[in-house]
Design a protein around this nucleic acid. Structure first.
Lengths: 252, 252
DNA sequence: TAGTGGTCTAGACCACCGT
DNA sequence: CGGTGGTCTAGACCACTAT
């Protein structure tokens, strides 16, 4: 876009987000003043402000009266306010998600998998390793274990399926109703470092993730490792919604 | 209030909030339609909507197109501080929190601080560095910047004050109403490594944290760096309840 | 269909920032 | 001082919900 074609604060927010990601505006720089954005997009000032406010809530921008809107972060943040898959989240941020499977194997569940997936120890499970990318750049290494009841569906998907969650929903009617995430930091293992092209023992942001179907069965157990500086997670708390928990035991 | 005296979306939001707390509107009931609130407060619809949107962001209200604004929660203040404060969280987990100030300095706000705290660039701020421990073991390095309006209160606290949040509340009536957290992973800087006794460039879990008072002013901007394996963050999300749920089970 | 919220317009005035 | 964001007005039309 970047033109004045259509309208809508959502599209404008998406376009601005896109332009920030593309480097048209850099961190700590100031956005063009509102009246210029109004010209550019051909909408009323209120609409532009609606878009800017949305980006501010998401941590991308920050206004200062009398000065302008400065770019807070060019990082993309995942908010837990919405339960989204990697691909759906990427699309909502105006980026192109990618993925490729590097390894897949039928195995017997180890202790950790049996605990998280609530299947019997040594039950058959499917382990899949994927590299996930944003706009063509690898940003995350995902190791997911699926219980037997979803394994066949997963194996039938193409290796470069961009959105596994979407495909599971569309093709098999398997819906994620609930998910638990545990976040911590780890050193890259030698396997990690090879797949993500980073030095061994460099820091990675790890998200352990278990998602559940509407009937409560676990759909998958994932260990996602993000390159630092590419993705961060954001939690907004208020008196009424407590969405964040600290946990003292090691994440596993 | 509850009258149509003055104006301003903040006052309207505050008034609605108070009326909800006072029980005039109960949980799961529906607010009067916007046009009636417009009459009641004697302002334009945009102003009413601005106030409603603010309450919605706090989790108090939730709109449904075609229906109305339903009251999501009538809860307020108390339990909140318990989850937000490092010290109180530790106590609730049966651990003994500790802390010591290693550095404190009055400075001029740099670009990042002025952005996050919404104070002018080069405004005077107070920077405090603390080491925080659990059961006598150092687990976290905390660098916090306070704006001028809280700096004096902070400086009056003893260096080993275990719970800053608690003290601010009890002694000065400064209450945290809302907070944003951004979580990612970083390499330990040389300063980090010295203070936390880890190798340089080893992974740390970083939490950037801005907390706000009830009137919306920023109370503090913090950069907390946790040793991996000591603390993790857990988030539980579900599709049906847009607001997030707490999960009391341990990470493992 | 009537009533609700969702979005948008085209102005206006004020408060704050920098020079 | 001129330029910026912050707030407000008084309309308008659309999309969705209930009946």
């Amino acid at each position: 876009m970047t033109a004045k074609n259509d309208l809508g604060y959502r599209q404008i927010a998406l376009d601005l987000s896109r332009r920030i990601i593309d480097g048209e505006f850099t961190r700590d720089s100031v956005l063009p003043p509102e009246h210029r954005l109004v010209e550019h997009y051909g909408v009323a000032r209120g609409t532009v402000r609606h878009a800017l406010a949305a980006l501010a809530r998401q941590g991308t921008l920050s206004p200062r009266q009398g000065s302008g809107w400065t770019i807070q972060s060019t990082l993309q943040t995942q908010s837990f306010a919405h339960l989204r898959s990697f691909a759906q989240w990427a699309v909502s941020k105006g980026m192109v998600p990618g993925g490729r499977v590097t390894d897949t194997a039928r195995c017997r569940a180890d202790a950790r998998e049996s605990r998280r997936l609530r299947v019997a120890l040594h039950d058959e499970v499917l382990r899949v390793t994927r590299i996930r990318s944003l706009d063509g750049r690898d940003v995350m290494l995902e190791r997911t274990t699926y219980p037997r009841w979803v394994a066949d569906a997963i194996e039938s998907l193409p290796a470069d399926e961009p959105s596994v969650v979407q495909a599971m929903h569309d093709r098999f009617g398997i819906v994620t109703a609930h998910a638990d995430h545990t976040i911590d930091a780890v050193s890259a293992s030698s396997a990690d470092s090879a797949l993500l092209s980073v030095r061994r023992s460099s820091p990675l942001l790890r998200v352990l993730r278990v998602s559940y179907a509407t009937d409560g069965r676990a759909i998958e157990f994932g260990d996602d490792r993000y390159l630092p500086g590419t993705v961060s997670f954001q939690v907004s708390t208020s008196v009424t919604t407590n969405s964040l928990m600290r946990n003292a035991s090691p994440a596993d």
